[in-house]
Design a protein around this nucleic acid. Structure first.
Lengths: 200, 200
DNA sequence: ATCGCTGTCTACCATATGGTAGAAAGAGTG
DNA sequence: CACTCTTTCTACCATATGGTAGACAGCGAT
């Protein structure tokens, strides 16, 4: 029985991100995950000693992935606030629609137990602070609409994750999920956020 | 034993809205609900024959409540698009922060089974259509930024529900949840949405 | 007083789920 | 080949959960 599979651990992580993110942590059983990976439940428990520790690993991996994407986007963008915001939204958009579970998982954090939530919050904290400081500077310089920078970060975040994760909302307005529909969605989303941030 | 309680059915509904909305449908057990109401699980099952039918009733009630709030706000506002948008956001804001579960429940719909989701979607459909048509007209008249009206509805929706339900996002930017903090939050939220919709 | 209806509870049940124990199977090493 | 280490699986277990059956108590009507 002990045949070595390709890379069981990361397959379990990947499946868990999708399942937890799409259906919610509580709604997913270890058997569900095992079923997707094509393995017995006990194999999951071999790699992650409990469902809770699996969740921790999943959150960790998600944080790392997203951080890398955002980091790269910011680095590559010119030093102009609207261009940077656009770059970040654009960078997050692709993984978000390809794997809605990714951002769905981040959103799931609100419902998790405080210890789990706090661990992810701490991980994200430096990003938030950097973004807040940056927006604050640019507002002071008149290159962004004057507002509370922290709140603008939060608003941009909920707008992007919301539109990316709530397929129901898009279905309600009969948005076509075709390739061109997605391109259009991305550009309208960017315009929406930029319009909200542009100086008056 | 058969003493009549005040209004068990509606107490169960109310508790269920909060619990389902805050923790997610799957994460809430009938015992949890019964515990909050102060009643035995079987009493819950007496009023609602199954957890699924309870969910239906909860969704129905939520839809009716929110519809009434929005309807009233639109009716009372002057016939000017930005004022109407502001009125709706303002009207939804109060119940949203007082009972995060309300909007949290709406957001939960994405994770529910298609039959449940569809029932709520159908209920909301007429509102969406009216809003879309209205925004479309006002855009054509140049009183709103020109964009896809349906998407604007979706974006405004996810922005408002997102900021109202994701307390984690607000905690991450260290937003004070005091009375004045909430007032400030409301006005910044409105400004954000209006700035995104104002004609260029 | 008794009858029946309504609402609530106690006693169970079947199933699903997270988790434990330990066997077996393959691969590398002496 | 024998031995060990890693990985996977089969066999269970305890608990939680949605749901059923039926007893019991208050209340209005006859």
């Amino acid at each position: 029985m002990g045949t070595r599979r390709a890379n069981t651990r990361s397959e379990i992580l990947e499946a868990s991100v999708d399942l937890f993110g799409n259906r919610g942590f509580a709604a997913v059983s270890l058997d569900d995950i095992a079923g997707v990976v094509g393995v017995a439940k006990q194999t999951v428990l071999y790699w992650f000693p409990s469902k809770d520790e699996l969740l921790d690993a999943v959150l960790e991996q998600t944080a790392v992935e997203l951080a890398a994407v955002i980091e790269a986007a910011v680095r590559a963008a010119p030093d102009e606030p609207l261009a940077r915001v656009e770059a970040v939204v654009r960078a997050v958009f692709r993984p978000a629609v390809r794997r809605p579970g990714l951002l769905g998982l981040v959103r799931e954090v609100s419902r998790l137990s405080p210890p789990h939530a706090e661990r992810l919050t701490l991980r994200v904290q430096p990003f938030v602070r950097r973004a807040t400081d940056y927006l604050g500077q640019e507002m002071a310089a008149g290159r962004l609409r004057r507002a509370d920078p922290g709140l603008m970060v939060a608003l941009a975040y909920v707008t992007v994750t919301g539109i990316a994760t709530e397929q129901e909302a898009l279905r309600a307005v009969e948005w076509p999920m075709t390739r061109s529909g997605l391109r259009r969605l991305r550009s309208e989303l960017i315009e929406f956020v930029l319009a909200a941030l542009r100086p008056a």
